[in-house]
């Protein structure tokens, strides 16, 4: 295969990575932006989404599309509910103290991971793609499902953007992010907003996982990479900036895909991590972040 088509294939792979990464990272960014909580358990919510998707799909039976559609609905709801309960039982009681919530979410990471190991087991299990049509370019065939992943991610991100900018709940979230105390003085139930935001962040990670699980398989240790990459993306994009997060996700996802195809996935991670180091040295507020006053 010539260089041109090879690059095209690599870009497609990169776009799929970028789409899933953008969803996961926006969840992390939202939680940090509104609640100032660094959620180390975010990758486990991703994993939980994939495992719930496998569960739902294997119990649904019938055409794989039915199981997948149900998973797309149920996995984010279940994961979001788990996160909201964790917020209520743990984070709220720590008063959202930045340092203590880091330790608490590390604990949450192990609790979720080990609970899944004990119930779901150590196997990696696939979820069948809802459809399996291949599209044939002159040089190679490519799964249309991967195009669906990209399209679905774009649609969900558009939905998040509309939620944040066009709805009352979005307004309430932004107000809480800007000034928690004044939000309280204007009757915004900050506790409830926090629980919903934490749930929403986890649900976005779960949605990303449902989309990727027909390509990648569900496994109890699959949360590590998305967590690392999400942190990389959120730091490069600027903490708390959703637009920056998406741009950085496209940047990191595309380069990860392309470098993985041409060289090796390890080199891709090395370069992404190096990029974070450079950003932290030369532009600590991130590409799109505002400098703290």
């Amino acid at each position: 295969m010539d260089f041109g088509p090879y690059l095209f294939l690599a870009s497609l792979e990169g776009a799929v990575t970028a789409a899933v990464l953008a969803l996961t990272a926006v969840g992390l960014s939202l939680v940090f932006g509104v609640m100032r909580v660094v959620n180390v358990a975010h990758g486990e919510f991703f994993m939980l989404g994939a495992v719930v998707a496998w569960w739902v799909a294997s119990y649904a039976g019938g055409h794989p599309a039915i199981g997948f559609a149900l998973a797309l609905l149920i996995a984010p709801i279940v994961t979001g509910a788990v996160a909201a309960v964790a917020d209520f039982l743990v984070l709220k009681r720590l008063d959202y103290d930045p340092e203590r919530t880091i330790v608490a979410t590390i604990g949450l990471l192990y609790i979720i991971q080990q609970t899944v190991l004990m119930t779901y087991g150590p196997e990696a299990r696939p979820v069948e793609a809802p459809f399996n049509v291949r599209i044939y370019f002159p040089w190679f065939g490519y799964s249309t499902y991967k195009f669906f992943v990209i399209g679905a991610a774009v649609a969900i991100l558009l939905g998040v953007w509309l939620l944040m900018t066009r709805t009352r709940f979005g307004l309430v979230m932004r107000a809480t992010q800007l000034d928690r105390e004044t939000a309280l003085a204007f009757a915004i139930p900050v506790d409830r907003v926090y629980a919903l935001v934490f749930g929403l962040g986890a649900a976005l990670a779960a949605l990303a996982a449902v989309l990727i699980v027909p390509i990648q398989q569900a496994h109890y240790l699959m949360g590590g990479d998305p967590l690392l990459l999400s942190f990389i993306v959120v730091i490069i994009g600027g903490l708390g900036s959703l637009a920056g997060t998406i741009v950085a996700a496209v940047l990191v996802g595309m380069s990860d895909g392309i470098i993985s195809v041409f060289f090796s996935p390890t080199l891709a991670k090395i370069i992404a991590t190096l990029l974070v180091a450079l950003v932290l040295v030369f532009r600590p507020q991130g590409l799109f972040g505002k400098r703290a006053l």
Binding site: R168, L171, A175, L178, D179, E181, T182, F186, A187, I188
Partner: peptide, 22 residues
């Protein structure tokens, strides 16, 4: 409040909306 404590990133209309929603 002292120092006004507006929601600085929100527009004037959005700040008023927060008050109206109460």
């Amino acid at each position: 409040p002292q120092g006004r404590r507006l929601f600085a990133e929100l527009t004037v209309a959005e700040n008023l909306e927060i008050g109206l929603m109460v």
